[in-house]
Design a protein around this nucleic acid. Structure first.
Length: 325
DNA sequence: CGGATTTGACCAGCGC
DNA sequence: GCGCTGGTCAAATCCG
């Protein structure tokens, strides 16, 4: 793989593996903190994901002939508006994304424009918040009700500013995956076109506003889609290792230098990347396990032949599997 | 009894 | 304006 094939997406902090034929291979989808888009050879992609084995074992059908190359591409944006999120999610689940190629205008750029628009609108709205203290002749109850509603509205407006998000898919029988943090469920909604409900969780830690949504893909009920929003402002109350150890293996991702990524990534985005990196690694390893793909904790990665730091992809993909163009 | 979950109601945004 | 949908709230309920 060559540097020129890297197509950085400024607005994404999570990406997914998909195929260049325009379909998400949802049951095979993995994503984590890959902050770039790149091409790998079909064979490498399949090998990486264990696609052939998975399908051979499950008897499912994958349209391999159309898949000449695999593209790593994003499916989650940062700071998207509420409705963008909904659309994204349903699009992901409905497998309706356009093919994302390094040269194509991606969903991400369109999303980021919408994001900016929405953000500006929000700021303007917040400026108009302080008004109407006029009514006097209302009963106390009605007054209280009204105040409640106003407070609620203000709260809602404030919350409209979305935190950075990332999403990933995991093949799992359990909806709510152990990720080292404690969550309280605060809602559950039926999802359009899906028999499976979406659950809403909030981090239980005081003053930590991180949320996550968990839903099962209706196209493959064995796949759980988890979307995180925000960043934890506290350490994990549960040691991450315990989750992995629970799978029955001591394997942990090797520490990987991200020094070279800095030159490729936008500033604040980079810090976000670093903050989430290890969390993503754990999630990725869990995902690999759940997919039955062994994670090879080899510290023998030949960094000289792989001078470009490719994030987690580098962690799990031997350098020879990435196409050198 | 306190914390977590459930669930119906409410609100915002969007499309028609 | 109306209906639909996603997201959140909060009272009721559950559970250890």
């Amino acid at each position: 793989m060559e540097k020129d094939n890297m197509d950085l997406k400024k607005t994404e902090d999570a990406v997914a593996f998909g195929s260049s034929n325009g379909y998400y291979n949802n049951p095979l989808l993995l994503s984590s903190a890959f902050d770039f888009s790149c091409e790998v050879e079909k064979s490498s992609f399949m090998e990486l994901l264990g696609v052939q084995d998975y399908y051979n074992n499950s008897g499912a059908v994958l349209d391999l002939p159309q898949l000449s190359k695999a593209t790593v591409f994003p499916f989650t944006t940062v700071n998207a508006s509420c409705d963008d999120t909904a659309k994204e999610c349903s699009e992901v689940l409905n497998q309706k994304h356009q093919p994302a190629t390094p040269n194509s205008s991606s969903i991400s750029s369109a999303s980021s424009e919408a994001v900016n628009d929405e953000h500006n609108k929000t700021v303007e709205q917040d400026d108009d918040d302080d008004d109407d203290d006029s009514e006097e002749d209302e009963g106390e109850e009605e007054q209280q009700k009204k105040t409640k509603k106003e407070l609620k509205a203000k709260k809602t407006k404030q919350k409209r500013q979305r935190e950075p998000r990332f999403a990933f898919m995991t093949k799992s029988e359990v909806d709510h995956l152990e990720d080292g943090y404690r969550w309280r469920k605060y809602g559950q909604k039926a999802v359009k076109n899906s028999p499976f409900p979406r659950s809403y969780y909030r981090c239980t830690s005081a003053s930590c506003n991180v949320k996550k949504r968990v839903e099962r893909s209706f196209t493959d009920p064995s796949v759980v889609v988890t979307t995180y929003e925000g960043q934890h402002i506290h350490p994990s109350p549960v040691m991450p290792r315990s989750a992995i150890a629970g799978v029955g293996s001591p394997m942990m991702p090797p520490a990987v230098s991200t020094a070279n990524l800095g030159s490729l990534m936008p500033g604040n985005y980079m810090s976000h990347y670093h903050q989430h990196r290890h969390h993503h690694q754990q999630l990725l390893v869990n995902t690999l396990f759940s997919l039955g793909i062994p994670y090879n904790n080899s510290n023998n990665i030949d960094n000289s032949s792989f001078s470009q730091d490719n994030g987690l992809l580098q962690d799990i993909v031997p350098s020879h599997m990435l196409k050198e163009k």
